[in-house]
Amino acid sequence: MNARLLPLLATVAIFLAAYAICYAQFPAMLSTRVIGNLLTDNAFLGIVAVGMTFVILSGGIDLSVGAVIAFSGVFIAVVLRETNLPPPLVFLLLLAITTSFGAFMGAVIHYLEMPPFIVTLAGMFLARGAAYLLTLDSVPITHPVFSQIQDLYYLMPGGGRLTLIGGLMLAVVLGGMLLAHRTRFGTNVYALGGGVQAARLMGVPVGRTTIAIYALSGMLAGLSGIVFAIYTSAGYPLATVGVELDAIAAVVIGGTLLTGGSGYIFGTFIGVMIMGLIQTYIIFDGTLSSWWTKIVIGILLFSFIVLQKGLVWISSRERVRPAGAK
């Protein structure tokens, strides 16, 4: 078995174990209602985390996504308030903006050879600033299309609702899995994470791939912003502060190596679900402070970092042994 699968298996095992504990205490948690809510409540995080997975797989980081989500919500709310543009057109316009914004950051990272951390940090301030520029207040979205979208769902057996945005997140995860694992672009992303120099020598179009990765992350951040706007029916420039860090945490808990080159989109999905599950547990319990979410996520992050270090150590030992034995 490939050692790279181990973190993914660990993530799935932790999710199942956590769910089992929840079920033992609150049997009601094993219902399609809870699962439906889990998907809906975490849809925006799941979508943006898929984009973050691509970025981290390539060895980069994107700190701008939380601010881009906030900008998206504000943009949608303000444009719908000020103009008569139909929502689908506004969505397309927004996706075009966030995608080019991501592509621009990718281009700066590649052509100016700047560290992604700094470039996307600047992008974070830019996007957050742009959101404040549009409005300082929370702008409610009253367009009828929004309430229609919110009412769209598929009734699962057991009474759970798979909402449109929950379904959209699942579709993004599936699309991300195909893109990462079944296309040349996906392999190129892994190649960049394995080593830019070697990837370049092997003919990977480094510049094009880097730009595409950040454009994809920008686009998914925009999509996540749309989902968040639908979820909250409002645009607020102070919203989703720190969501980029939640996304990074979900990616790492999902078993992706922070240094790039190894990980799975599906793991990120499970990572998001673990984080959502902890919150659900706290709601069910009713007495715990919601800060316990942060503490558990912190503990999980630490254990995954240790697990990954351990795996790297084991695989490097395994390699040396047969060669030295000859």
């Binding site: 790279r4 892994y190 394995g194 080593g195 092997m202």
Partner: peptide, 10 residues
């Protein structure tokens, strides 16, 4: 100059 994190076939 190969990529250790990809499969042999890749």
């Amino acid at each position: 100059n190969l990529l250790p994190n990809l499969t042999v076939a890749e």
